[in-house]
Amino acid sequence: MDAGGASHPTDQALAEAAKAGSSRAFSELVLRHQAAVRGFLRRVCADPSEADDMAQEALVTAWTKIGTLKPDASVRSWFCGLAWRKAMTTQRGRARSAARDRQWLETRPEFDTPAARDQIAVRKALDNLPEDQRAVVALCLAGDWSHAEAAEALGLPLGTVKSHAARGRAKLLEAMGEAP
């Protein structure tokens, strides 16, 4: 019981109510366990924002699969299991995509020129930049925007845009094998 004398329902009671269609009960389960799900995925995924997206998708999936939760199962474990499967599906998809890209590149030898390799290196370097930094690089270095224009468009402080542009440029030059 809490200070007001009301008792808090157990996870199992909330799960049973959610199975019966109570979105309020399911929302309470999500509130109780979403931090654990997000924390788990942030530890196993390289990109925290991607981990948050996967956590959100896993919790949406949980609502559609709540009927599969066994009566005595741990809700937190079940949520994390769904999240793990979502992460593995994403990883497998990424691996298949990378394999297709490699296969395509292997079948297109006429495109294996220094310029094409440079483009691939730049693309990989861009993909490894944090999202904000990638956006600044796309606008300022590739799109010829001023730092002030990029700051306004992205809603970032001017100093942040300038440092993102400098760091992004250095990483791109490094990917090209040039010193910044």
Rank of each mutant, 00 (worst) to 15 (best):
84 W>L: 15
90 T>H: 14
94 R>S: 12
88 M>C: 14
66 I>N: 03
73 A>H: 09
103 Q>F: 14
75 V>C: 08
97 S>C: 13
86 K>G: 06
58 A>Y: 06
91 Q>M: 11
56 Q>M: 01
69 L>C: 07
82 L>H: 00
72 D>C: 08
93 G>T: 09
82 L>K: 00
70 K>A: 15
65 K>M: 06
82 L>S: 00
76 R>K: 12
60 V>P: 02
74 S>W: 10
67 G>K: 03
92 R>L: 07
74 S>T: 02
95 A>F: 12
56 Q>H: 09
92 R>N: 11
56 Q>I: 00
64 T>Q: 13
72 D>Q: 14
102 R>K: 08
61 T>P: 08
94 R>N: 13
73 A>C: 04
55 A>L: 00
53 D>Q: 05
99 A>E: 15
92 R>E: 12
85 R>Q: 02
60 V>L: 15
90 T>A: 15
102 R>T: 11
97 S>L: 15
76 R>N: 13
103 Q>D: 14
55 A>K: 00
91 Q>R: 14
96 R>P: 10
65 K>T: 08
61 T>D: 12
81 G>Y: 08
67 G>N: 05
83 A>V: 01
91 Q>T: 12
69 L>A: 00
55 A>Y: 01
61 T>Q: 14
60 V>H: 08
93 G>D: 14
70 K>W: 11
91 Q>V: 10
57 E>T: 05
58 A>R: 05
99 A>C: 08
60 V>T: 12
52 D>W: 03
81 G>F: 09
103 Q>I: 10
79 F>H: 02
68 T>Y: 09
87 A>E: 08
69 L>V: 05
82 L>Y: 03
69 L>Q: 03
63 W>A: 02
71 P>H: 05
72 D>G: 12
75 V>H: 05
52 D>I: 00
96 R>K: 14
92 R>Q: 14
83 A>F: 02
53 D>S: 05
88 M>Y: 10
57 E>M: 04
62 A>H: 01
55 A>E: 00
61 T>K: 15
103 Q>S: 13
99 A>K: 05
101 D>W: 09
61 T>W: 10
100 R>P: 09
93 G>R: 08
79 F>L: 01
54 M>F: 04
58 A>P: 01
52 D>H: 03
84 W>R: 15
89 T>E: 15
59 L>E: 00
86 K>A: 13
59 L>T: 02
62 A>L: 01
95 A>G: 10
101 D>E: 15
54 M>W: 02
78 W>N: 02
101 D>Q: 13
103 Q>L: 15
92 R>W: 10
100 R>T: 10
70 K>V: 06
79 F>N: 03
85 R>E: 03
